[in-house]
Amino acid sequence: MSDPVTTDDLDPTASIATVVLRHNRVDLALHMLRPAPVDADRPSRPLLLLHGLGDASPTSVPRWAADWPGVVAALDFTGHGASTVPVGGGYSAETLMADADHALAHLTGDDPEGTITVLGRGLGAYIALQIAGARANRIHGAILTDGPGLAGGPTGPSSQSFFALASDGTAPDPYALVELGRDLRPGDYAVSFVGLATAGAPVTNPITVASTFRPKWLSAVADAPGVVESSLADALASYA
């Protein structure tokens, strides 16, 4: 159901500027792929792109997002792309949700009613769902698409393990790949964010599933009230 998202979809003529956001001891790279609206006389909310596990932000506006009328930005999560690689791991989806929250604050600025639309691939889709629930009144639609890390880990408690990995400080951080690749994702926990989003979002259907692959947590989300299923193109058009 989803449209493919690959490096072939990038617009090589676009320019990019990067904003560094300080988050505790981490510097987050927020890439302003399109720092100004296409039509300045027709204001539109920003579109925030969240990448998959082990990936980084695109270097220009993807072709499938070319018609988005507003600002287009892309965030490198902690341990990925141009953002800080912390020492010793300790990653969680909630940590990355805080990353996205910092990007949200920057993109809406001083406007207390400012909103953005979020599009997440893979792991980024799970984070997009979480931020849509945690900041329901600030997210005008979250689009969940296929990408690396979409499955996550088990849906129930499992035994702990302890390990040490060799890391040279470059991204993607191997600790991020291991820890985020097996994070716990119970279906009821994921659906709880849908409930939060539908209760406070400024749009009727705040979550759109545009993925082909459906791990258990995402199947539960897709079946929840207030969630719609569509193509990526239709989802972007509906929230624009």
Results as ranks from 00 to 15, higher is better:
Thr84Leu: 10
Ala142Thr: 04
Ala128Val: 01
Met1Thr: 13
Thr115Glu: 15
Gly114Asn: 03
Leu119Thr: 02
Gly79Lys: 12
Met1Phe: 03
Asn24Asp: 14
Trp217Tyr: 07
Ala171His: 13
Tyr91Ser: 01
Leu150Cys: 09
Val20His: 09
Asp39Met: 05
Ile143Ser: 04
Phe163Pro: 00
Gly79Cys: 11
Asp110His: 13
Met32Ile: 05
Ala142Trp: 09
Pro86Leu: 07
Pro186Cys: 12
Leu48Arg: 03
Val85Glu: 03
Thr7Lys: 07
Val20Trp: 04
Ala151Trp: 01
Ser83Trp: 07
Pro12Trp: 12
Gly156Val: 14
Ile139Gly: 03
Gly147Lys: 06
Leu28Arg: 08
Pro202Gln: 08
Thr78Arg: 14
Ser211Gln: 10
Ala166Lys: 08
Pro148Ala: 15
Asp76Gln: 10
Pro46Gly: 06
Leu75Ala: 11
Asn137Ile: 01
Leu123Gly: 01
Ile139Trp: 07
Arg45Lys: 14
Pro69Arg: 06
Thr170Asn: 11
Leu28Asp: 09
Gly152Arg: 00
Ala222Phe: 03
Ala151His: 08
Gly149Val: 06
Gly200Met: 11
Asn24Val: 06
Gly133Tyr: 07
Ala93Met: 14
Ala29Phe: 08
Val5Ala: 14
Asp27Arg: 15
Ala136Glu: 00
Arg135Thr: 00
Leu75Glu: 07
Ala199Tyr: 01
Pro215Asp: 02
Pro35Ile: 12
Ser238Lys: 09
Pro202Ser: 02
Val38Ala: 11
Ala134Phe: 01
Ala36Glu: 15
Asp3Met: 12
Ser158Trp: 08
Gly195Glu: 13
Glu179Asp: 02
Pro154Lys: 03
Thr18Ser: 11
Met1Tyr: 06
Leu96Asp: 00
Gly89Gln: 07
Asn205Tyr: 15
Leu49Pro: 02
Gly70Lys: 13
Gly114Asp: 02
Leu107Cys: 10
Ala40Val: 14
Ala201Trp: 00
Val5Trp: 13
Gly70Leu: 11
Val19Pro: 00
Ser161Ala: 08
Ala240Gln: 06
Ala98Met: 08
Val38Asp: 06
Glu113Tyr: 10
Leu232Ser: 14
Ser231Val: 04
Asp173Glu: 04
Asp41Gly: 06
Leu123His: 10
Trp217Lys: 00
Val5His: 13
Thr7Ser: 06
Thr84Asp: 05
Ile127Ser: 03
Ile139Arg: 08
Pro37Met: 10
Ser231Glu: 03
Thr145Met: 13
Ala233Phe: 10
Pro206Gly: 02
Ala40Thr: 15
Phe213Ser: 12
Ala82Gly: 04
Ala220Cys: 11
Ala224Glu: 04
Thr108Cys: 13
Ser57Asp: 00
Ala222Leu: 05
Pro157Lys: 12
His102Leu: 13
His31Val: 02
Val61Glu: 05
Ile143Lys: 05
Ala132Tyr: 01
Asp55Ile: 01
Val178Phe: 09
Ala220Gln: 04
Ile116Arg: 01
Leu48Gly: 02
Pro225Tyr: 05
Pro46Asn: 10
Asp183Lys: 01
Val71Leu: 14
